[in-house]
C-alpha cells in the first residue's frame, strides 16, 4: 500500500528526471563568479590599461620579433616586436566602447519604439511593427556591414551600424512587455482614479517594464561585441596604432603559419569576454523571468 502512495511509482518517473538542484547550484555559481571576475578585469583593462599591461602597445622590441609566448611575453610578440598581451589589454577599450555604446543607443531607440508601439497600439503599432519586421528581414551583421560600408570606416560609424542592427530585437521585447503590463490590474486601478494617460505610462508602466530590456541588453552586449569585432575584422574599422580585438585578430591572420599566437589570443579575449557576458546575462534572465526560474 505504501508503495502505491509513493508518487514516484505511480507516475513512473525514473529517478534521473528528478532535478538534482542542490548539486548544480554551486557549479553554476562558480561559472558566474569566474565570469564576473573576468568582466571586471576586462573593464579595468579598458579603463586603466597602463597599470595592467607590462609593455606599451606601441613599443617595438626589434630584438624579439615574432617570438613565441614565454614568461617575458605571455601572448608572444607580433611582426613589429610588439607585446601581444599588452595589445590585447589596450585593445579592450575600443571593443568595449563599440559594445556598450551600441547597446545603449540600440536599446534606447528600440525600447522607445517598442514602448510607444505597445502603449498606443492601433495603427501606429501596426505601422511600427511592420517597419521593425522589414528591418528584421536583413540579418544583423549584413545590415551593420551595409551601413558601416556606406558611412565609411570610423569607430562611431561602427557603433551606429551595430546599434541599428540591434534595434528590432529591443523593440519587440519592449513591446511585448508593455502589452502585458498594460493589462495588469494596477494600471486599470490607476486609470480609474483619473490619472492622466501619459502619467500612467511614465509612472506605472515604464518602471515595470525595464527588466527584460536589461536582460536583453546584457546578452545584446555580447552580440554587439561579436558584430563589432566582425566588422573591424573585415576591415571596416579604423586603422589605428592601437587596434581593437577584431582588427588585431585580422592582422594576425597573415601570420598563421609563423605566429599562431597573434590571432589566437585576441580571439580568445573576445570569446572569453562574450562568454562571461552571456553567463551573467543568463543568470539575470533566470532571476528576472519567473517562468525560467521555476523550471530550474
Amino acid at each position: 500500500m505504501k508503495e502505491i502512495v509513493n508518487e514516484e511509482t505511480v507516475l513512473r518517473v525514473p529517478k534521473w528526471t528528478l532535478s538534482k538542484r542542490k548539486k548544480n547550484i554551486s557549479f553554476s555559481n562558480i561559472f558566474l563568479l569566474v565570469a564576473i571576475v573576468l568582466v571586471l578585469f576586462i573593464i579595468a583593462s579598458a579603463l586603466i590599461p597602463k597599470w595592467i599591461a607590462p609593455y606599451s602597445p606601441t613599443y617595438m622590441n626589434t630584438e624579439s620579433i615574432l617570438s613565441e609566448p614565454s614568461s617575458k611575453h605571455w601572448f608572444g610578440t607580433d611582426y613589429f616586436g610588439r607585446d601581444v598581451f599588452s595589445l590585447v589589454i589596450y585593445g579592450s577599450r575600443d571593443s568595449l566602447i563599440i559594445g556598450i555604446t551600441s547597446v545603449l543607443i540600440g536599446s534606447l531607440i528600440g525600447g522607445g519604439i517598442g514602448a510607444v508601439s505597445g502603449y498606443i497600439g492601433g495603427y501606429i503599432d501596426h505601422f511600427l511593427m511592420r517597419v521593425i519586421e522589414i528591418l528584421m528581414t536583413i540579418p544583423g551583421i549584413l545590415l551593420a556591414l551595409a551601413i558601416a560600408a556606406a558611412l565609411g570606416p570610423s569607430l562611431m560609424n561602427i557603433v551606429l551600424a551595430v546599434a541599428a542592427s540591434s534595434i528590432p530585437g529591443y523593440a519587440r521585447v519592449m513591446r511585448g512587455q508593455i502589452l502585458s503590463i498594460k493589462k495588469r490590474q494596477f494600471v486599470d486601478a490607476s486609470r480609474s482614479i483619473g490619472t492622466h494617460s501619459w502619467k500612467v505610462f511614465v509612472w506605472h508602466i515604464l518602471p515595470n517594464s525595464w527588466s527584460p530590456l536589461l536582460v536583453m541588453g546584457t546578452i545584446g552586449l555580447g552580440t554587439s561585441i561579436l558584430i563589432g569585432s566582425g566588422l573591424s575584422f573585415l576591415g571596416l574599422g579604423v586603422i589605428k596604432e592601437v587596434p581593437d580585438w577584431g582588427a588585431l585578430l585580422s592582422q594576425g591572420r597573415g601570420y598563421l603559419v609563423v605566429g599562431w599566437w597573434m590571432s589566437t589570443f585576441p580571439g580568445l579575449a573576445i570569446t572569453l569576454f562574450v562568454l562571461s557576458i552571456n553567463i551573467i546575462g543568463d543568470k539575470l534572465r533566470d532571476t528576472f523571468d519567473p517562468k525560467t526560474s521555476r523550471m530550474r
Binding site: 561579436l226 566582425g230 585578430l249 598563421l256 580571439g267 562574450v274
Partner: peptide, 18 residues
Amino acid sequence: GLFGISMPTFWSGILLIL
C-alpha cells in the same frame, strides 16, 4: 551552447585552420 554563441566565427575558423 554558451560557447557556440560566444565564439566569433572568424576566430573558430582560424583555430580550425591552425
